[in-house]
């Protein structure tokens, strides 16, 4: 009797969750699919987004992501390496870890304020792709570090001992042995970071801004896809259909990135598995 009740309640809950998910996704796909074609992806934005395409928006989004990763990846990699070798009893590792845990919880709108104050005002970058990318770099750092660290820690301790027993220098052990072995974890981290950054809107509102023109340089303002969706949905009368299209593009892009990463990391992992 109790078993049936539990099963019933759980199936019901799972059904509600799956139903909500299907409703959300189905709605976006049904309403967005009809409007997407090659021209939509390539053309410039026209009539505040009600017409034309999203070419410049895609370029701006990509540039923001490139800036974000080219700063956060080296920094995240270095920090993850330190953490993966840190003795948890020591204060330094503990401090860095605790600080990153808290940073991961800071609301994205606050990162937006921070980016505006630091990159926009203090460093004089104003509303620009550079400001937006750097702001996102700060935001994705904790998530990046956590998964890269897990990748590094998953490398068997035997391998570190083998390198040490050969008297190998630390940097060579790291570059030639540990990082290649940890590549799947690094990849997963990068993808999670991209996913988080591409999904972000609030942190970009006052850093990379709203300008929908094709950017000439990293110092130009550039509208990201997420900001484009927001603007069409809330600020442009009659922008809804095009907001559906942009939302579908964003979701599909995120799904493609995620699936690529999963299959890549599985392939990398399987090539390392010891058949013996």
């Amino acid at each position: 009797m109790g078993d049936r009740l539990l099963a019933g309640v759980c199936w019901l809950a799972a059904g509600i969750v799956a139903g909500g998910f299907a409703w959300l996704l189905g709605d976006i796909v049904m309403n967005g699919l009809g409007q997407i074609n090659l021209m939509y992806l390539l053309m410039p934005v026209a009539d505040a987004g009600r017409a034309g395409g999203i070419g410049p928006v895609i370029v701006s989004t990509s540039l923001i992501l490139v800036v974000c990763l080219s700063v956060s990846l080296p920094l995240g990699l270095a920090t993850a390496i330190v953490l993966s070798e840190a003795d948890d009893e020591r204060w330094f590792g503990r401090l860095v870890r605790r600080s990153l845990d808290v940073l991961a919880g800071v609301p994205s709108i606050v990162f937006g304020l921070f980016g505006y104050a630091v990159f926009g005002l203090a460093l004089g970058l104003g509303f620009s792709i550079l400001s937006g990318g750097l702001t996102l770099a700060c935001m994705v750092l904790p998530i990046l570090i956590r998964s890269i660290e897990q990748g590094l820690r998953a490398v068997p301790i035997d391998i570190r001992h083998a390198a040490a027993a050969l008297g190998m220098q630390r940097w060579r052990t790291l570059v030639a042995v540990l990082l290649p072995a940890a590549a799947p974890g690094v990849l997963v981290g990068v993808v999670l970071g991209i996913g988080r950054a591409a999904a972000e809107t609030a942190a970009l509102l006052f850093t990379s801004g709203y300008v929908a023109r094709m950017p000439d340089s990293l110092l130009d303002s550039g509208r990201s896809l997420s900001v484009h969706i927001f603007d069409l949905a809330l600020n442009v009368a009659g922008g809804e259909p095009r907001a559906y299209a942009a939302a579908l593009v964003l979701i599909v892009a995120l799904a493609v990135v995620n699936l690529t990463a999963i299959s890549l990391s599985e392939r990398l992992l399987s090539s390392r598995i010891n058949p013996a």
Binding site: H161, L166, Q169, R172, V177, R272
Partner: peptide, 24 residues
């Protein structure tokens, strides 16, 4: 030098396993 209980080659090619320590 040391040889461990469980074989622990680097997850690299055979040649690279021997090449790396020499380079280093």
């Amino acid at each position: 030098g040391k040889v461990f209980q469980k074989p622990n080659p680097f997850p690299l090619s055979i040649a690279r396993n021997l090449d790396l320590p020499l380079r280093d």
